[in-house]
Nucleic acid binder design. Structure first.
Lengths: 211, 211
DNA sequence: GAAAAACCTTGCACTTAATGCAATATTGCA
DNA sequence: TGCAATATTGCATTAAGTGCAAGGTTTTTC
């Protein structure tokens, strides 16, 4: 019945096969999506290409969309790890900066960028993509809060998360206007530099506006 | 065939009737959604209640979801207006603060809050809701950029927009934890106060982190 | 004011995503 | 081996969404 039953599993042939099938479906789906587009690919096409029945497809993924985003879930996991392994006495702004740059550099390969493109030109996917940012923000906030000592600091971390993820979105947009061969890491670093500068200036300005 | 033909229209009986029908459909749909939920309401139910054919429903709205969000589009328009009417020599942070508080206070009536709730407990809607924030951010950035003189300042406005809209999202979450009778305006003001404070502190911290 | 043009509404047929169910096959284990 | 658990599939069904053509209104034109 295809539910993930946590049954003290000792990873038998069954589990392995299941993962293989899942991978095959995902592989087939992404290839087709990138070739001819998301809307233009039917679930039946995918099932065909992965050599399973249409019904089985839905046994592995709850919806067509989920295939695309299951792929991207690793990003959040990476980021959480990166944050967790920063020294615990490091300032939050510094920790998040290092962790995010590190993660982004790992995650931004050719295929990931192509998928980003696909998402961008498919309205239905675009919406869900934004949801992903929201969840990422949530997780980032939690990871940062876990590092905080005071209640005061925890509230601030929620905001920091919002600001940083906001920057990530802006960054994704700006990247498209960057020359093709540009270095991703350099780009990420300059984004953060910009962000810190602007935060300082905005803070300054805000303090000055009295009313 | 039900396309919005911009034909130098002088608002005849046709246009009027069409708008009436549209309103009727929207009214019917929102009432049903709020009564029994989004997924639990079929397009046929809506068409029935609005006394049109199912086919005609799709002549007025491209999808079921669009009924919900067509409603909310007025918010962005309001905000843009509010920004545009601020004195042009006012600091950006101050302008955006006033404009947003003003808009939020107008828009946050009983029905709007109920709809927000509906959106929140319906995954498909939640995704699109996030898209709306993204668009709002885009528009806000444009409105702010229009006020800017230097290239430098324009880049900063993109970030300010991201930060402010991020706060709006955080605010929407925090509001749910607020006591029921609380004043919306007071809440909005305290959010901004928090935001400015934190921006200053974060800016400070960022400047201190040297690497 | 009637014919023509433009537009609106509807019914019908069709495609596709998604779900439930029951039959069948495969695997893990005693 | 044989039994229990799980995987896979086919079939039927619901609901969203689209295309098309027939028939009804409104607006325009002469």
């Amino acid at each position: 019945m295809a539910e993930k039953k946590p049954k003290e599993a000792a990873e038998g042939r069954r589990e392995r096969k299941r993962r293989q099938t899942r991978d095959r479906i995902q592989q087939a789906a992404m290839t087709l999506f990138l070739e001819r587009g998301f809307e233009e690919t039917t679930v039946e096409d995918i099932a065909e290409a992965a050599d399973v029945s249409k019904r089985s497809f839905f046994d592995y993924f709850p919806s067509k969309e989920d295939v695309v985003f299951a792929w991207q879930d690793t990003f959040a996991q990476h980021l959480m790890n990166a944050i967790a392994t920063r020294p615990s006495d490091e300032a939050a702004v510094s920790a998040v900066r290092h962790a995010l740059i590190e993660t982004v550099v790992i995650a931004a390969d050719q295929r990931a960028l192509a998928i980003g493109d696909l998402v961008n030109r498919t309205p239905a996917l675009k919406a869900r993509d934004q949801l992903k940012y929201a969840k990422l923000e949530q997780k980032l906030a939690e990871a940062l809060e876990a590092r905080s000592r005071s209640q005061e600091e925890r509230r601030r971390m929620r905001m920091l998360a919002a600001v940083v993820i906001g920057m990530l979105r802006v960054g994704a947009e700006r990247w498209k206007e960057e020359p093709k061969g540009a270095s991703f890491e350099a780009f990420a670093r300059s984004l953060f530099a910009d962000l810190w500068t602007m935060l300082g200036e905005l803070g300054e300005e805000a303090r000055a506006s009295t009313d």
